[in-house]
Design a protein around this nucleic acid. Structure first.
Lengths: 110, 110
DNA sequence: CAGTCTATTCGCAATATTGCGAAAATGCAA
DNA sequence: TTGCATTTTCGCAATATTGCGAATAGACTG
């Protein structure tokens, strides 16, 4: 079990939220960034989950998609924000998955 | 518009890659590219659909996310491959939507 | 303890995406 | 047709992501 940064290893909400509140206190425009951070965390976690479920090391997965372990590590970092569809697809493809993108309407409660 | 480039696969010399091949038997890489192309086309179409549904011109949407019309046009180009999560989120956010990413197992017909 | 495998971080080059203006093409209505 | 808004394409600079080695840290076993 990989111990990631102590920061976001546990429940998604707390750590990220606190960090962001400290940085962008009281800015509604930054609220969206909070959601993005959480989404990125989920992606990182999912990649890690899929890789370990396939019983692959970072180095092994890296070779499958033609890159190095450090790149995989970066993808599994909850704080990484540079996810591209191309990279997600490469990872997903190596793990026999496909990436589905959906746009979902946000309803804001008054 | 950028021309699609074929990715150069590295030579196979590992047991891991053999595993990979086993999981990919009967499914050449170019087939996956076709799926990606279609997925990109869907994204482009969806952005166009959401923008027009919101009764916005490319210029108007561009201003909402702090860029120019040519960028929006590029996003709505079915052949565009450079989609990043960050950009998709900017567009989605301006249209009151959120981007959902899902990894879905590929099911082969036995 | 040493040794091995794995994961993480850092630094920089290579590559890709974005920013943005301008021009050309398209569409539509008078 | 003209006129006007909109879309599309082009070119290049600015920015961001990826590629990759090397060093460090962590975990596990003998």
């Amino acid at each position: 079990m990989p111990v990631k940064k102590a920061k976001t290893l546990k429940p998604t909400s707390d750590a990220v939220e606190i960090l962001h509140r400290r940085s962008y206190e009281g800015k509604p425009a930054r609220l969206k960034n909070l959601e993005d951070a959480r989404a990125n965390d989920e992606i990182a976690r999912k990649i890690h989950e899929m890789r370990t479920a396939a019983a692959l090391t970072q180095t092994q997965l890296a070779k499958l998609i033609g890159t190095t372990a450090s790149v995989i590590c970066r993808l599994e970092d909850a704080d990484y924000e540079g996810h591209s569809l191309a990279m997600l697809r490469r990872v997903a493809g190596a793990l026999n998955q496909r990436v589905e993108i959906r746009f979902i309407p946000i309803r804001r409660s008054a």
